[in-house]
């Protein structure tokens, strides 16, 4: 564990808490892509199957359980509890266009051709693009509430911090995982445009509004 990874995990947890609280307090999931949240729940389920086979640390187990539980709670809030406020007219990204190619890629490029390893790889590839339905929804409506922007910023920062963690581990521990690094790079790059808008607009107190 190094500082970048810890900060990355904390910013990941913060993003999830921001989103859950926003939906819970306002009883509304307007502006939130249920499809992205379904993809994240899929990502954690596929990746953390090793909860039952491998023990790494109490921290690791605790965080995995939290990620799985909160991702399902978020999906439940969007599709059941606050269904009436769900923006399904704008949440129209076709997730099969993300699931199928990442699954095929995971079958082709992986560390080892076993069920656990292919599913882990699939979760890594899928996570890298899972935010696309959310970014698509924001671009379709042309704006995002500040709280949604804070959520996206925290979530984008998480993989960005992991990149620093991988850089650190490469030099300090002689450890690297190319699949995670390349997918993490893709994931972080997808947020760049949003980061720019967040820093130039939201942090100056303005609403995130896309140019017409």
């Amino acid at each position: 564990m190094n500082i970048f990874r810890l900060l990355g995990d904390l910013s990941h947890i913060l993003a999830i808490i921001i989103l859950l609280l926003k939906i819970w307090k306002t009883r509304s999931c307007a502006g939130i892509s249920g499809k992205s949240q379904i993809l994240f729940a899929t990502v954690y389920t596929m990746r953390y199957l090793d909860l039952v086979t491998t023990y790494i640390s109490a921290y690791n187990t605790f965080m995995k359980v939290i990620f799985i539980a909160t991702s399902y709670a978020t999906v439940f809030l969007i599709y059941v509890k606050c269904k009436a406020t769900y923006d399904h007219n704008h949440d129209t990204f076709r997730i099969e266009f993300l699931i199928l190619p990442t699954l095929v890629l995971a079958l082709l490029i992986n560390h080892e051709f076993t069920i656990m390893e292919v599913l882990w790889t699939f979760s890594i590839y899928l996570e890298s693009v899972a935010i696309l339905p959310q970014l698509f929804l924001v671009s379709k409506t042309g704006e995002a509430e500040s709280i949604t922007s804070h959520y996206l910023f925290a979530l984008g920062s998480y993989r960005g911090l992991y990149l620093l963690n991988w850089l650190y581990r490469f030099y300090a521990e002689d450890h690297y995982d190319l699949i995670a690094i390349i997918a993490g790079l893709v994931q972080t790059v997808l947020y760049c445009d949003f980061f720019y808008l967040y820093i130039t607009k939201v942090l100056k107190g303005k609403k995130l509004q896309l140019p017409a």
């Binding site: 990874r5 995990d9 990941h12 990746r47 090793d50 491998t54 790494i56 690791n60 965080m63 995995k64 990620f67 882990w120 992991y162 963690n165 521990e173 002689d174 450890h175 690297y176 995982d177 995670a180």
Partner: peptide, 10 residues
Amino acid sequence: VEIADTHDEL
């Protein structure tokens, strides 16, 4: 270079 047989990250 260490080839990890488990994934220790989240």
